[in-house]
């Protein structure tokens, strides 16, 4: 698990005076699904292009599978599959022909290319459409064909740049499930770039938050929330039916609990800040007091919160 498969050191890319990627340091380990999360124009695509050696960095170094992408792009490209945001196929060729073409560009003989392409089309569920021209494919089908196209070279790493853009929700779920399955079954490292929090949360082992060319935080979702909300890591939300119980009255009751910090009135609900998880105690106290507990929720931070918290910070700086 501790094999570094992607290693970016002080990576910088400038376009004129504009800095797209600013001294980026990032490490991705073998076999994990890493989510690169950031708004549009954060420099995610530029970073990916530099990993593939399609763009030269202004300074810093990129190592993929221990190979420098800038000086040895061919070797890197034979190990990395790249699925761009809007993948282009030759519209006048069929899905199968497009895949065979890619396979042959990867030094595969025709007969092997055809077998492999058919296998992968079956895997992504496009067998019935394999002889249809890709010009007639729907968006979701194109994206699945894109995944097959990426897999045909037996990659060690696949890089997906906004792969779910423009696919309907059920299509997105299927697509993500396919990626997780592939990663687990074949041990492929996945770098998943997106601005969709929920998708990243759903599939990624670790997440890097990327704003304005800088990596603001890195880690799994729990680590991130701990880092971010260090001041008040736990929040329990309650609602009571008895209107007599105001925030100050409840505060008097709850103060006895060890770890209680503060309570705030939030229209029809109360937010209790605490230094440890005291949800069970809160429930007991409120019920015993006869306040009529109607709603109790231990709040966990999702990427949403992390995201907004960071972007607020990002815009200020």
């Amino acid at each position: 698990m501790n094999n570094k498969i992607i290693e970016l050191v002080d990576l910088t890319k400038q376009y004129g005076s504009f800095t797209a990627v600013d001294h980026l340091n990032l490490t991705v380990h073998k076999g994990e699904i890493f989510g690169l999360l950031g708004p549009n124009g954060a420099g995610k695509s530029t970073t990916i292009l530099m990993m593939l050696g399609l763009t030269e960095p202004t300074s810093g170094s990129v190592k993929v599978c221990g190979i420098n992408s800038t000086t040895n792009p061919i070797e890197v490209k034979s190990k990395v599959g790249y699925l761009p945001e809007d993948i282009g196929f030759y519209d006048d060729l069929t899905g199968l022909e497009n895949l065979i073409y890619t396979a042959r560009l990867n030094h595969m003989p025709l007969i092997q290319a055809r077998q492999k392409a058919e296998l992968l089309l079956q895997r992504v569920g496009l067998t019935n459409n394999s002889n249809k021209k890709t010009g007639k494919y729907s968006r979701g089908m194109r994206q699945r064909l894109g995944l097959a196209d990426v897999l045909i070279k037996n990659p060690e790493i696949i890089i997906l740049d906004e792969p779910t853009l423009g696919i309907d929700p059920s299509g997105v779920r299927e697509f993500l499930e396919l990626i997780v399955k592939l990663s687990k079954e074949e041990g492929i490292t996945v770098l998943f770039s997106s601005h969709h929090l929920h998708q990243v949360q759903q599939v990624c082992d670790r997440v890097g938050i990327f704003v304005g060319g800088k990596l603001l935080a890195e880690g799994n979702i729990q680590e991130l929330s701990q880092k971010l909300f260090a001041r008040n890591p736990f929040i329990t939300e309650i609602k009571v039916s008895n209107k007599q119980y105001t925030a100050s009255k409840l505060k008097g009751l709850l103060q006895k609990i060890d770890g209680f910090i503060d309570i705030a009135d939030n229209k029809d609900s109360f937010q209790i800040e605490c230094s440890r998880d005291i949800t069970a105690e809160v429930a007991k106290v409120v019920v015993d007091a006869g306040a009529g507990l109607t709603y109790l929720n231990k709040k966990e931070y999702g990427l949403d919160d992390i995201y907004y918290r960071y972007f607020e910070g990002g815009e200020k700086s």
Binding site: L54, E75, K77, F89, L105
Partner: peptide
């Protein structure tokens, strides 16, 4: 046309010069 169809990034991300 390869740029407009988006095929160039796919072809060039294959191991070719």
């Amino acid at each position: 046309s390869e740029f407009n169809r988006g095929t160039i990034s796919r072809v060039l991300s294959q191991p070719i010069h």
